[in-house]
Design a protein around this nucleic acid. Sequence first.
DNA 1: AGTCGCTCCGAAACCGGTTTCGGCAACTAA
DNA 2: TTAGTTGCCGAAACCGGTTTCGGAGCGACT
Lengths: 386, 386
Amino acid sequence: MMTNPTAQKGESQLRAASATGRVKLDELAYHLGLSKSTVSRALNGYSDISDATRKRVEVTARKMGYRPLSHAQAIRTGKVRAIAMVINGEEPDRHNPFLQDFLSGACEAASSFDWTMTISTAKSEKDMLKVLGRLVEERKADGFILPRTEVEDARVEYLRELKVPFILYGRTGYGQAAAMENTSWFDISGETAIRNAVIRLAEFGHSSIGYVGSDPKFNYSHLRRDGYVDGLKAAGLEFDPELIRDGARTREEGALEARALMNLKNPPTAIVFATDLAALGCYSVCRDLDLEIGRDVSVIGYDGIPECQYVSPGLTTFSVDSHRAGERLATLLIRQTRGEQPKDLRELSEAVLIERQSDGPPRLKSEDLALKIVNLNDHNRGGDRL
Amino acid sequence: MMTNPTAQKGESQLRAASATGRVKLDELAYHLGLSKSTVSRALNGYSDISDATRKRVEVTARKMGYRPLSHAQAIRTGKVRAIAMVINGEEPDRHNPFLQDFLSGACEAASSFDWTMTISTAKSEKDMLKVLGRLVEERKADGFILPRTEVEDARVEYLRELKVPFILYGRTGYGQAAAMENTSWFDISGETAIRNAVIRLAEFGHSSIGYVGSDPKFNYSHLRRDGYVDGLKAAGLEFDPELIRDGARTREEGALEARALMNLKNPPTAIVFATDLAALGCYSVCRDLDLEIGRDVSVIGYDGIPECQYVSPGLTTFSVDSHRAGERLATLLIRQTRGEQPKDLRELSEAVLIERQSDGPPRLKSEDLALKIVNLNDHNRGGDRL
DNA sequence: AGTCGCTCCGAAACCGGTTTCGGCAACTAA
DNA sequence: TTAGTTGCCGAAACCGGTTTCGGAGCGACT
């Protein structure tokens, strides 16, 4: 084959290389009768390659099944074509039912760009930054997805300082407009959902609607709380500070706050919870107090965890599409690493209402509800907790 | 600094390099007054480096915070210091509550070796092999963790053919001794757990114990079923083929099989389920039939999903330590990629019994249970299903 | 003294890509 | 015709490591 004047290596050597199974750039170039630099540039969209050559290269590359090794590219480009996410291993409730959905969404998006997804876990706040640092230092990823954003998020400052691309799942810096300047994010509008929950309950006829918020450390807690206040206003209801409780991170804490609301002189006939987990805590409280959920007390949650549909009565909630969230986050992040401006890479999506049996028109007025609870407390020597 | 005769580059160039932030091998070598080949070999345990030099290199490397870029190493070594797992996105119940635990275990182990973990998802059986193939071809990982092993597992044959290291979470090839020849695995002995469940129920006084198995496609289904048969034998009970049902993959299917058992002429007073999910299906059946779980019917599950502790009565089950499973699998896999024999990298662990209120001594004999169910069926025009 | 072998290290090739630089041919403008 | 562009491509350097190969220095043994 001496007809090929551009071969850089002897044919025997190319033979040997092709014996390894993978097609390399060298072989592809030899096969095309081009130099490997031309082939590389053709594949990477350089403008100094003629259209005819580019087409020919692309077709042949596909035909021969050529795929560049991302780590071989990375050594020169510094880009490994991977995104990373560090998940927190120390959560109060570690059994995140959405993780699989979320990851499958993110992986699908990454795959579609021929990228991959690497994950890591941190055991604590401090460990989190260390793990991130290690991944950055070893360039294991070109960008990061930061889930569960906090109001003051150390990860954000850290990565911003390092000038590493990242995207938030959620927003951050509640109340400070500048906090998210030039950062990209994807979020579900929890505030809209909670607002709609309040309006829905008001339309059912509830006039005393309570709210149990979540950990104020997380940004979403504040937004959902705003949604509650907003919903009251939209429904023309008065805001009563007694009806609002905060900081329920677990089922047990949800129960605690629900019980506090029910022990009020004027207990709410409906409660909106910032999370399903907390709302499920309300179920045991209502069982203890002999209140029927959906009739005596209406309950609406948020998240759409699978258990909602198996409790009795089924919990009305707002379902979050984790798969899509993962897909969008990965896509936006990859676009960011390709040069798009972070501020142009933001998306706000909506949760969808899942109507079940935990809410409806109030059976009792607040006063009657209070009487029922007091009576029961007398019978039952004050409940088993609190 | 011309005191250093071995410098391969001008000082200015090294300055520039060190401005990037990362310490490179070149700089480390320059700092030590050694060639980069010597430093590299010192760090990688070659024997032709004196102990004194090696120590000196190691100390300085640590002091300067040198970390090799794994993708730069990979280009020569072919090893990327990463393990991968492809999770199946199409499961009937996609909300795997153990994934986070499992991943955190695997990531911790990987991190401790300075490896990383990459994940990907497949949408179908065929997609699975394609995704694996892509990861292998692009050398995104040095080895794979294969979760949810099937009796005949296409992934195993595929990776074996490609000579890519892998480890099973679970066993495979039920009944064929040769199927797992020279393959490594980690598993929890479901058979022991189910066996113990049967013995426990027998000791409570049950003599009619049913069993609802899982999808026979998965290897564990057969092993757990063996455990049931074994347990009967150990307890001196007779095996009744009517009492064994199979193929319950979901809550709904669990309910279906449980109902079939309860409709038997001689219904079991206790049922062991191969999975918690199926066992939870039994709860709705018992509610329909007005049977009290834990008294009229004893139920034992397997898996330890979080919901078990929130249903009423709490489900007695066997808890699997997913965190540890991830940790062991990653560790064994990494050791395999370092040259250890797969057949020496096998571990069998035990699930631990979580005693709750869903099992206990039988209140009724099988005959009386049958009567109660028949009566109810008469009243209720035959139940709402089947 | 010469040879051998051993220990320890440096020079250079190498891995599989990307990117810079320069050169050839064809085409345009003077 | 000639000089200057422009389009297109090859040669070679480069990325940050690893690995091969050979050689200097030294002690031991003839």
